[in-house]
Amino acid sequence: MSQQNNWPLWEVFVRSSRGLSHVHAGSLHAPDAQMAVRNARDLYTRRNEGVSLWVVKSSDIISSDPDEKDSFFESPQGKDYRHATYYKASEGVKHL
């Protein structure tokens, strides 16, 4: 009954204030990039949530394979020495 639009899906990233990164806020449909930015403003910044917006077509995002996540992210496993908390002997030494 309704005519189908098939407008592309856009992912919206909002910078909440200067000095912070853009953070994913959600997604929306829009016919083109300009409309996507305007709709993103109306949808995701109705209460001063942002000072800058990015929109990117969802289909342009390349992501890691969720099925591979265990093997793909296994490199840091067991490498506690990459964290400061690994080094216990120096505990109590000031300004270290």
Partner: peptide, 27 residues
């Protein structure tokens, strides 16, 4: 009323990630 439109759109986006298109949901 604008908020309610917004809430509808947030939720349609979430529903779409489950594999049903926006046009179908609207229909």
């Amino acid at each position: 009323v604008q908020d309610e439109a917004g809430h509808g759109l947030y939720l349609y986006s979430a529903a779409e990630t489950l594999g049903t298109s926006r046009d179908e949901l609207n229909d």
